[in-house]
Design a protein around this nucleic acid. Structure first.
Lengths: 214, 214
DNA sequence: CCCGCGATCAACCTTTCGGTTGACGGCAGC
DNA sequence: GCTGCCGTCAACCGAAAGGTTGATCGCGGG
C-alpha cells in the first residue's frame, strides 16, 4: 500500500474519536493523522492540508455547527472530502450537510465495515450515502406535494414556540381565521389533527429546527 | 494489581464500544471482558456474573431502554454496579437512571480521566455523578416546587409526541381527568397555559429530551 | 386569457382543552 | 396521629382549537 488515505477526525466526544481511531487505524490503507474536538479546530486543521478525508460530526457543543464547518472546508479548491458522521438522520440535518458540500452522510450506529467502505468511496471522489439516508432523500423528491409553503412554516415555527392562534395572528399581522386556515393545510400535509402532533411530526422530519442546545 | 475491575460495555454503537475499550483497556487496573449491542443482551450477560461494573448507554435503537436494563440488573443481589453513560443530561433521563438504581451518571463528552475515575468510584461501591449532573440534581432539591414529578414528566413526554388527553389517558391507563390534573400542575410549575407552550418550555430547559427518534 | 395556487378573511358548528372545585387513598416526615 | 404531597378521579363551565364552506385578491404558467 503505497499511499494510505489520510484521515482527520472531528468530533467533540473523546470516546468517539478513540473509537473511530481504533476502528479505522486497523485498516491497512487508512492513516488517522489528526483529531479536532471543535468544528473551528477542524476547519483550521483542514486548511493546513495533508488530509484526504475529514470525518465530521454535526453536533458540537457551543460554537460552530458541523454543517458550517463542512461548508467552510469544502469551499476551498483541492480541499479534503468531508464525510458527515452523525447520530441523527433528520431531514434538516441531511439537507444541510448535502447543501454544505458533504461527500457522504453516515450514521454512528453503522457497522465498521460500512464506515470503512464509505471512507474509501469518498476518498475516490464519489458520494457515499448510507442506505437509510438515500431512501430518505428519495422520499423527499417523490413527495413534493407534502412540502410546506414558506408561510406555513412560519406559522408552524411560532406554534412550536407555544403561541396560541391569537398570538400567532398578532405576531404575523393576520386574522385568526388565516392562522387556522394555514394550520388546517399543515395538518393535512403532515397527516395529523392537532397543533402538538404537527410540531412533533415536523420536528421528527426535520422540517423545522430542533430546540434548545445548551 | 492483583484483581482488575472487570467491565461490561453496553452500547448500540460499535464505534462507541471500540472507543470505550480503547480508552479503558489501557488502564492497568481495568479489564473489558464483555460487550453488548442491545439492552437485552446486557441484562443477559450481566446475569451470568463475572462483571464488576457495567457501562450502560440509555438510548438503544428499538427494544428495551437503558434505564429498564439498569433496573433489571440492579435488582439482583450481588449484581454488578451500573454506570450510566449517555449523551444527554435531561432531567427525565437522570431521574429515570437514578430511580433504576444506577451507581453513577456520566456524559459521553467527559474526558477519559473522569471516566476512569468514575469507574473506580463505582467499583468501590460509591456513587459517581458528573459535576454537571450533580448540579442539576441539587437544583431539583433546592426548588422542589418547580420540579416536575415522575408522573408529570411521563405525561409531558406523551404530549410532546402529539397525543391528545384521551390518547395519553389510554396509554397510561388513566382517566382523562387525571391527565388534565397532571397537565394543570405542569402548567403551573412551568408558568404556561397550554400544552404546546409546556412542551416548548420543558424542551428548552432540558426537562424532556428534544429531537427526533426513529 | 384563464386557470391554479398561495394567501387572506368570514361565519358557523363541534370537539377538545383549560380551569376550578372537591374528593379519596397512600405514603413519608414530624 | 396528623400533615403534606403525590396520584387518582368526577362534574362543571368557558375558552380555545379543530373542521367546513365559501369568498376575494394577486401572481405565474399554459
Amino acid at each position: 500500500m503505497p499511499e494510505p488515505i489520510r484521515l482527520l477526525l472531528a468530533d467533540d466526544h473523546p470516546v468517539v474519536r478513540a473509537g473511530l481511531r481504533a476502528v479505522l487505524d486497523t485498516e491497512p490503507d487508512f492513516a488517522v493523522v489528526g483529531e479536532a474536538a471543535t468544528a473551528e479546530a477542524a476547519v483550521s486543521l483542514a486548511a493546513t492540508g495533508g488530509f484526504d478525508v475529514v470525518l465530521m460530526d454535526l453536533q458540537f457543543g457551543p460554537g460552530m455547527h458541523g454543517a458550517q464547518a463542512t461548508a467552510a472546508i469544502a469551499a476551498v479548491a483541492g480541499a479534503p472530502r468531508v464525510l458527515v458522521l452523525t447520530t441523527y438522520d433528520t431531514d434538516a440535518d441531511i439537507l444541510a450537510a448535502v447543501e454544505a458540500g458533504a461527500a457522504g452522510y453516515l450514521l454512528k450506529d453503522a457497522p465498521p465495515e460500512e464506515l470503512a467502505a464509505a471512507v474509501r468511496t469518498a476518498a475516490a471522489g464519489q458520494s457515499a450515502l448510507a442506505p437509510a439516508i438515500a431512501h430518505r432523500l428519495m422520499d423527499r423528491m417523490r413527495a413534493p406535494g407534502e412540502a410546506l409553503t414558506g408561510r406555513e412554516l412560519e406559522v408552524l415555527r411560532l406554534v412550536r414556540e407555544g403561541l396560541s392562534n391569537q398570538e400567532v395572528s398578532k405576531r404575523l399581522f393576520l386574522s385568526q381565521a388565516t392562522v387556522k386556515s394555514h394550520l388546517v393545510h399543515i395538518y393535512a400535509k403532515l397527516g395529523v389533527d392537532s397543533r402538538t402532533a404537527a410540531v412533533a411530526v415536523a420536528t421528527a422530519r426535520g422540517l423545522i429546527r430542533g430546540g434548545a442546545h445548551r
